[in-house]
């Protein structure tokens, strides 16, 4: 399978240990920058009640939904307990020439 790389933003537009929302082709994603300065991407909406995760808080490798505090590991998409029980889908990310790309 070959991913199509879509340009997201400049790498420094996301703070360390933070997240932004990225909308593309009618879909919404969350793009993360970890405390170790690696970049990651997941579906943008929480699997519990379709809330934008980019409004939530990143702590270490965890994104927490702003509405009901459902937690996911944004590197793997794994749901970390109630109220979320369905994992998040993750997407490949690369940084080239200071620009972040998501593989769709």
């Amino acid at each position: 399978m070959s991913d199509t790389w879509i340009e997201v933003c400049a790498a420094d537009e996301i703070d360390e240990e933070d997240v932004i929302r990225f909308d593309h082709a009618g879909r919404t994603f969350a793009i993360y920058r970890s405390p170790e300065d690696t970049y990651h991407a997941t579906d943008g909406l929480c699997t519990h009640e379709k809330i934008h995760l980019a409004d939530g808080l990143v702590m270490d490798h965890i994104i927490e939904c702003p509405k009901h505090n459902g937690r996911f590991d944004y590197k793997t998409g794994e749901a970390k307990g109630a109220p979320v029980c369905v994992d998040l889908r993750t997407y490949p990310v690369k940084v080239e020439g200071g620009t972040v790309f998501i593989g769709l």
């Binding site: 809330i51 934008h52 409004d55 939530g56 808080l57 927490e64 702003p66 509405k67 505090n69």
Partner: peptide, 11 residues
């Protein structure tokens, strides 16, 4: 509006 205050309230 929406979840504008959520992150700061959580912190």
């Amino acid at each position: 509006k929406g979840n504008a205050v959520a992150r700061d309230i959580r912190l």
